[in-house]
């Protein structure tokens, strides 16, 4: 007997609503006021970004603090291929960035007028650029980083603006 393959195709649509819980304030302040908020441990004073409501070193509560929009790249890559949502943006940089008053690094996109590895190397100073208010949705894609010396030019583009 000859084996005949047969498939029945199906599609399942699933809607997820990831609640941000105690981290919600980070996204709301980002969206409404272009603020980047971290949290500071009441005991050991470690500053967490991304923020955590409890310190992971000593399990104490933390308090919200506003962080500067400048920082340094810790490690980076340049992406040349991506998922459908991002493909129109390639090439783009991705980096772990430590903001100036934070003790931990945050993963975020980095754009540059001249996107070459030497522009995104460890220690490169970067500064945050935000989407215009009407386009901000309370997501990480509401902002990105650019090399500090390009910042003035990026925030003068019609679709972007700088923080206060």
């Amino acid at each position: 007997m000859v084996f005949q393959e047969h498939q029945i195709r199906d599609k399942i649509l699933i809607e997820y609503k990831y609640t941000m819980g105690g981290q919600s304030k980070f996204f709301i302040e980002l969206m409404n006021n272009k603020k980047i908020l971290g949290t500071k441990c009441r005991k050991c004073k470690k500053v967490w970004l991304p923020p955590r409501i409890n310190c992971s070193e000593c399990y104490e509560d933390t308090d919200w603090i506003e962080l500067p929009h400048t920082g340094t790249i810790q490690v980076s890559t340049i992406v040349w291929y991506g998922a459908a949502a991002f493909i129109q943006n390639v090439p783009y940089g991705c980096a772990f960035i430590k903001l100036d008053k934070a003790d931990t690094a945050m993963f975020q996109g980095v754009f540059s007028e001249n996107l070459v590895p030497s522009k995104l190397k460890k220690g490169q100073r970067v500064k945050a650029v935000f989407k215009k208010k009407e386009n901000r949705e309370g997501k990480m894609t509401d902002f990105f980083f650019v090399p500090e010396d390009e910042w003035e030019r990026w925030i003068n583009k019609p679709e972007y603006e700088g923080g206060d």
Binding site: Y18, T19, G21, Q23, I53, N54
Partner: peptide
């Protein structure tokens, strides 16, 4: 419980 995320 949208006041907390999964880890919280």
């Amino acid at each position: 419980r949208s006041d907390v995320n999964m880890a919280e």
